[in-house]
Design a protein around this nucleic acid. Structure first.
Length: 247
DNA sequence: GAAATTTGACCTCA
DNA sequence: TGAGGTCAAATTTC
């Protein structure tokens, strides 16, 4: 099956290419969060090397994106309705805690939104989340669920909401499985170690043990750090099982 | 029994 | 004033 990414590239503009690059960048981050726990358990040195390689690739994409952004700005503005996602965007945006007064209920400011994604696996992002609320949203068929980082005792302010899309998306006459809009707020201050350990408890990580993501992980465990196969990596990123779309 | 989830009430903000 | 976000007690799950 030809990926939607490829199709857009073939007929696309600078903005389409930018959109795909953002998607790839985000996919890389998700893949990084996905495989690092397994790598660290197996071999800490490989994990460190993998982090370095991932960061290099993400930086390269960021460099290409900034060039393309220069071109597309000259050509007439950004793609409507798409968040601009820059490297570490979530980390840079948040200087203040999201909730300024503990115990006070405050409506979330949209400025605090860091990024949003559409995915079929909303729990699968490498972090350990705890649900703290659920609401029916006006005009929506499905409820919205509210999650915060499970490491709140370490003052981690990260939260996210998961909203199932009202209608399943159909691409190339194929009925896709239910998709969820995941919006992340704040960033994790619970550090990588917690992310790593927390991921073991993340419901999404069960997917690996259950075999849904086993292919990707198995491939990576066989990975030779000295032999980076970029086409193969792109194949993994295009894996519909992950199916992350930046919105 | 601890941890996680559910759910109704409450609070804030547009 | 109502929609959306959060709290916290009750309930469920492990």
């Amino acid at each position: 099956m030809k990926s939607s990414s490829t199709m857009v590239v073939n007929g696309g503009s600078e903005m389409d290419a930018l959109f795909l690059l953002r998607r790839q960048q985000e996919l890389l981050r998700q893949l990084r969060a996905l495989i690092l726990p397994a790598l660290r358990d197996a071999d800490g040195r490989s994990a460190d090397l993998a982090i370095s390689l991932f960061d290099d690739v993400i930086d390269c994409i960021a460099g290409v994106m900034s060039r393309l952004e220069g071109i597309s700005t000259q050509a007439g503005g950004r793609r409507a309705g798409v968040d601009v996602i820059t490297p570490n965007a979530g980390e840079r945006q948040e200087e203040k805690p999201m909730i300024s007064n503990v115990g006070q209920k405050r409506r979330r400011n949209n400025d605090k939104r860091s990024r949003s994604l559409i995915t079929v696996v909303p729990h699968y992002d490498g972090h350990h989340w705890r649900k703290y609320g659920q609401k029916n949203i006006n005009g929506r068929e499905h409820t919205r669920s509210y999650y915060r980082c499970a490491y709140t005792e370490r003052n981690c302010p990260a939260t996210k909401t998961i909203q199932q899309q009202d209608h399943n998306i159909t691409i190339n006459c194929e009925e896709k499985t239910a998709k969820y809009i995941v919006v992340y707020y704040g960033h994790h201050t619970c550090c990588d170690d917690n992310t790593r350990n927390g991921a073991k408890n993340d419901p999404g990580m069960d997917l690996i043990q259950n075999g849904k993501m086993a292919g990707a992980v198995t491939e990576f465990q066989k990975f030779d750090p000295g032999d980076v196969d970029m086409p193969a990596l792109i194949e993994v990123l295009d894996n519909p099982e992950l199916n992350w779309d930046i919105i």
